[in-house]
């Protein structure tokens, strides 16, 4: 299909089909000039912080939600809208569901001399080809850490293996 048509006629159609897009944020809310995730300019504070993949956030939030459930009958009333939306989002976009697989992926990626942020982008988007991985994480090539195409391909293969056998 060479021509993709965005349906705009009825909201119901869109919600039923659940169009899912991969998109790039081109303007951040804070408006800081220096920010650019493609070059890993995300501020010192966040560069050093622990970054979480969607599947990890999903484990954390579900655990917290279960705790709330035990304390009260109506946990949905207890949580903020931000929590609810985040939980929905990470449940939907978790590539790895099984906690063991999540740990394996982090171990695998943390052996690759990646920054936390790069690690999580790869873990979230699970690119299939080397070109795709470089397009998603341009900084992977630019920092001279000896990531040649072969090393990247091996890493992507290992990731898909974990997914296959989880």
């Amino acid at each position: 299909m060479s021509k993709i048509v965005i349906l705009g006629t009825e909201v119901q159609i869109i919600i039923a089909v659940y169009l899912i897009f991969r998109l790039k944020l081109s303007l951040s809310m804070s408006g800081e000039e220096e920010e650019n995730a493609a070059e890993l300019k995300i501020g010192d504070e966040f560069l050093k912080a622990k970054c979480l993949m969607n599947c990890e956030v999903s484990l954390i939030l579900e655990h917290k939600y279960e705790q709330l459930q035990q304390m009260s009958e109506d946990p949905l009333n207890q949580v903020s809208q931000v929590f609810e939306k985040s939980l929905q989002y990470v449940k939907r976009f978790s590539r790895y569901k099984n906690p063991d697989a999540v740990r394996q992926v982090r171990e695998l990626l943390s052996r690759q001399q990646l920054a936390e942020f790069e690690l999580c982008v790869l873990g979230n988007l699970c690119p299939e080809t080397v070109e795709e991985a470089i397009a998603m994480v341009p900084s992977i090539k630019s920092r001279g850490r000896g990531h040649d195409d072969e090393a990247i391909e091996k890493m992507l293969n290992d990731m898909s293996l974990i997914k296959k056998f989880e």
């Binding site: 944020l25 650019n36 070059e39 966040f46």
Partner: peptide, 20 residues
């Protein structure tokens, strides 16, 4: 746990509404 979007970040999203 915080959610912080960055300029240039690539992520997945669910479309909620479409218009021209």
């Amino acid at each position: 746990v915080v959610f912080r979007p960055f300029k240039g970040e690539i992520l997945e999203a669910v479309v909620t509404m479409v218009n021209k």
